[in-house]
């Protein structure tokens, strides 16, 4: 079990005029090995929730156990917790700060008690994992790199200390389509090595549909769905209140259904959808008509 939350609630600025409850009574479990998407419109509490996972926000109500560490205890071993839960914020490249890439990436491991030599080894290993040219890049200033490279270096900085859980807040936002894909493929690669559990916040429903085993859906601080992307997106009723949009593939399937054409439910990506359209037989007639 990676994360177990029960009756987790959180209120910002409690007992002040700005009091705002961001999370209401959330209970869920995230298992080792899962790729979990957390979705919801802006202000639904996604970031507040994930910041609880490594105690950046202190647990005030309910129970939360992360990597067997009970966060409701009086004395939480923060350092141990944070070395197990790697957190990548939105636009992580804004947090690069050192004068060389290698120093930047080794900052985390040094903080978590690696000696300098170990930290440098870990940093180089992390850099090669994220797919940058280590030799070329390590002595450069992080600010000389392109946006996509900066994001990779920032991810390297988090994975250098080998977290068991990686939490990412919109890891692909601001990247172009190829950049998005390569970051997502990188996450899948990381799962094969040391980082068993990946939790990501995303606004890109197509991405969630394709890469996640499970989705947690938040709406105004409440957990309104916990299940597979397929179950969630194929029941459009789920979406009406959340301000989210169904993936384009599902939308096409729904529109076809309204026209009386039913497709098999397995079409969350373009290839599956194309196959399902062909399999439905809807196009045969047309091909015959225009075939000559």
């Amino acid at each position: 079990m990676s994360i177990e939350a029960s009756n987790l609630s959180y209120t910002y600025s409690a007992k002040t005029p700005f009091e705002k409850t961001a999370l209401f009574d959330l209970s869920f479990t995230i298992n080792k090995g899962e790729t979990v998407g957390i979705i919801g419109s802006t202000g639904s509490g996604k970031s507040t929730l994930v910041q609880h996972f490594n105690a950046l926000i202190k647990l005030t109500s309910g129970k939360l156990v992360v990597c067997d560490i009970d966060l409701s205890l009086k004395k939480v071993p923060f350092k141990q917790l944070r070395s197990k839960v790697g957190m990548l914020f939105q636009y992580p490249e804004y947090q690069l700060f050192e004068d060389t890439v290698l120093k930047d990436v080794s900052f985390g491991p040094i903080n978590f008690g690696f000696d300098k030599e170990q930290a440098l080894i870990a940093a180089e290993a992390a850099l090669s994992l994220v797919g940058v040219d280590v030799k070329e890049v390590k002595t450069k200033s992080p600010f000389e790199l392109s946006g996509g490279e900066q994001r990779r270096v920032a991810i390297a900085g988090v994975i250098a200390s080998k977290p068991e859980i990686l939490v990412l807040d919109e890891p692909t936002s601001g990247l172009d389509p190829l950049g998005k894909r390569s970051i997502l493929n990188l996450l899948m690669e990381l799962k094969k090595s040391f980082c068993d559990t990946v939790i990501m916040i995303s606004h890109n429903m197509d991405e969630i549909a394709e890469y996640c085993d499970r989705v947690l859906v938040l709406n105004e601080g409440k957990l309104i769905f916990d299940g597979t992307p397929k179950d969630f997106f194929h029941n459009p009723g789920n979406l009406a209140e959340t301000g989210l949009k169904i993936p384009h593939t599902v939308e096409i399937r729904e529109l076809l259904k309204n026209k009386g054409v039913s497709l098999s439910s397995d079409c969350l990506n373009v290839n599956e959808l194309t196959e399902a359209i062909v399999a439905s037989g809807i196009l045969k007639k047309r091909e015959g008509k225009n075939g000559s």
Partner: peptide
């Protein structure tokens, strides 16, 4: 990347559908 609907129509055209 093309929009999803465009991609699907391109794929179908590739398969010989008009």
């Amino acid at each position: 990347e093309l929009p999803v609907a465009t991609k699907v129509s391109v794929e179908l055209r590739k398969l010989g559908y008009d």
